[in-house]
Design a binder for these strands. Structure first.
Length: 562
RNA sequence: UGACCCAUAGUGUAACGGUAGCACUCCGGUUUUUGGUACCGUCAGUCAAGGUUCGAAUCCUUGUGGGUCAACCA
């Protein structure tokens, strides 16, 4: 048995080193800490796959912890959608927890810090505090309230807690170092007054802890061994460790924060703020618009949990800024759907085709293979008749020999049916082809085993019987932006790069009748076109399909070169 | 005019002082009743300059380029 050794990413190496240095494997514990202020996107999926993936790899618990310290922005709706998305991706958390569960403990620790002279109440406005903060290149200066008596601090802090003061009038600050080169260490705010109802604690609290004060202590309370976050928190690590020092008991595990680069995707944006802007300004139809890089958008588009997990795994984890090619995501969904999606025929841009030597009124049921990649997928029947629809672009009156499709005087195979030859066309006044007249070779029926059925013709095209076809709506999606990195331009806003053709609706496409029983969410391959799934907008009398992704199309590439 | 982080084919990611590899993309070919799939193949890379070493993508120095940091957001 030779097993290819899978290389470890740098975070796994850190874990392995900790284990080698004596950390008990049973102490390994991770967490995914979303703020419930928006929907999860493909970048979060990378973090989810990382943390829950480590949990699976090391058989360690992974907590879902909502970082809910800002009642102004957070809502139950987001909590619900986040839980749903994580489960849909296929992961299970050990415990569902909330930073707000720790408000009392955090408050008690803050009192202790005041008593230890490590925190003080500042009466200044945020503007004054900002002014004293200095800049990255200039040190800050101390607050005039920095050396307040412990008793006074205790009294003031309690009054803050009890709602005696207005918002913005007082904050509790850690007493660290106003001249630190790390701005975060310049007496950071630990608590602010916020008289807002919290989605879980209601009216209990008039003060709310800040991220830095909350996050590391929450990790410590939960005994998270490795707290993994994105690169922009690198500078926070010093403060994370400082706050931990204030409460740390050497008997307990000390959490370790490490940072990795967030996953970016080409031709889209990934910040919640920008995504929200797209939703609110109506460029897309909600957070689950199939063009959105949100988990809910990708789900509606037809992406599967597995394809997203495999995308995340193959993209990897590292520390450098990146823009991952959208083509990699598309590769993974095609790769899965190719194996699982039943094949059907659908005509999106129909032109009528009449087989003049096929008896009028005759109908027959032909057999089609559901999936050549899956021997167990079975077969279905497809009605055939004298009048069909084919794809308009599959016919040309004249074309060179690179065009493998139907042209006058030449033959082509109708998928799962007969070989036909184009004889003539009817056009309307402006030259648009109305009907293509063909003859068929009666002995060439697919699968009949006759000599004629085994003739090799260069092209095979898809079709539907006009009498039997179902009309349905088909939505063709394309990338939301025309630029690889729409938000990487200093002089231009990301919305300048919005793709005006990101959605094309075909109100009356024709699909084969077997689709009548298709259920919302079901995925199919429309042969020669792409993968499509049934949208939630579908109703009993009207199918609606989303194009998940087109098939690779080497003909389109040949055409483009001209 | 600061601190910290990062730099490997077009993109993403390995190689942990000992032959620069993998995936996607691109391009070419074979097979094919999907111009799909599958299979085969081609092109293509260590930011630069010094230094240490028998040997450097890897260690050191300097430079260059990119990113992060001045919310009572997370």
């Amino acid at each position: 048995m030779s097993e290819v050794k899978k290389s470890l990413n740098f975070l796994e190496q850190i874990i392995e080193e900790d284990l080698a240095k004596g950390l008990d494997k049973s102490k390994l514990k991770f967490r995914f800490p979303p703020e419930p202020n928006g929907y999860l996107h493909i970048g979060h999926a990378a973090s989810i796959c990382l943390n829950f993936g480590l949990g699976i790899k090391y058989n360690a618990p992974v907590n879902l912890r909502f970082d809910d310290t800002n009642p102004v922005k957070e809502e139950q709706e987001y909590v619900d959608s986040i839980k749903n998305d994580i489960q849909w991706l296929g992961f299970n958390w050990a415990e569902e927890l909330y930073s707000s569960d720790y408000f009392q403990q955090l408050y008690d620790w803050a009192i202790m810090m005041i008593k230890n002279g490590k925190a003080f109440v500042d009466d200044q406005t945020s503007e004054q505090i900002a002014e004293q903060k200095g800049t990255p290149t200039k040190p800050g200066s101390n607050s005039p309230f920095r050396d307040r008596l412990v008793s006074e601090n205790l009294d003031l802090f309690e009054k803050m807690k009890n709602g005696a003061f207005d918002e913005g009038t007082h904050v509790l600050r850690a007493k660290i170092d106003m001249s630190s080169p790390n701005m975060l260490m310049r007496d950071p705010v630990m608590y602010r007054i916020l008289k807002k109802a919290h989605h879980r604690t209601g009216e209990d609290w008039k003060i709310y802890p800040m991220y830095d004060w909350t996050h590391g202590e929450s990790d410590y309370i939960e005994q998270i061994s490795h707290s993994l976050c994105t690169l922009e928190f690198k500078h926070h690590r010093e403060l994370y460790d400082w706050f931990l020092d204030q409460v740390y008991d050497p008997e307990k595990l000390r959490p370790k924060q490490r940072e990795f680069a967030r996953r970016n995707l080409s031709y889209t944006v990934m910040s919640k703020r920008k995504l929200l802007e797209l939703v609110e300004s109506g460029y897309v139809n909600g957070w689950d618009d199939p063009r959105m890089p949100t988990i809910s958008g990708l789900r509606r588009r037809g992406y599967t949990p597995r394809s997203i997990r495999e995308f995340s795994d193959s993209a990897g984890i590292a520390k450098r800024d990146n823009v991952t090619d959208l083509a990699l995501l598309e590769f993974h969904i095609r790769n899965e759907l190719n194996k699982t999606a039943p094949r059907v025929m659908a005509v999106l841009d129909p032109v009528k085709l009449v087989i003049t030597n096929y008896p009028e009124g005759k109908e027959e049921m032909l057999t089609g293979e559901n999936n050549p990649e899956d021997a167990d997928a079975g077969f279905r029947t497809i009605p055939f008749s004298r009048e069909l629809y084919i794809e308009r672009e599959d016919f040309r009156e004249v074309a060179n020999k690179k065009f493998f499709r139907l042209k006058l005087g030449k033959e082509v195979r109708l998928k799962n049916a007969y070989i036909i030859k184009a004889e003539s066309v009817d056009k309307d006044a402006d030259g648009t082809i109305k009907v293509i007249y063909c003859t068929y070779d009666e002995d060439s029926k697919s699968g009949s085993g006759t000599e004629a059925s085994q003739r090799k013709v260069k092209g095979t095209i898809h079709w539907v019987s006009s009498k039997h076809a179902l009309k349905s709506e088909v939505r063709l999606y394309d990338r939301l932006f025309t630029d690889e990195a729409p938000d990487a331009h200093k002089e231009r806003g990301f919305k300048e790069f919005i793709n005006p053709d990101s959605l094309k609706v075909i109100p009356d496409a024709y699909v084969e009748p077997s689709l009548a029983t298709a259920q919302k969410g079901d995925s199919f391959q429309f042969q020669r076109l792409g993968y499509f799934n049934v949208d939630k907008d579908a109703s009993d009398d009207r199918l609606v399909f989303n194009r998940t992704v087109a098939l690779r199309d080497s003909w389109a590439k040949i055409e483009q070169r001209k």
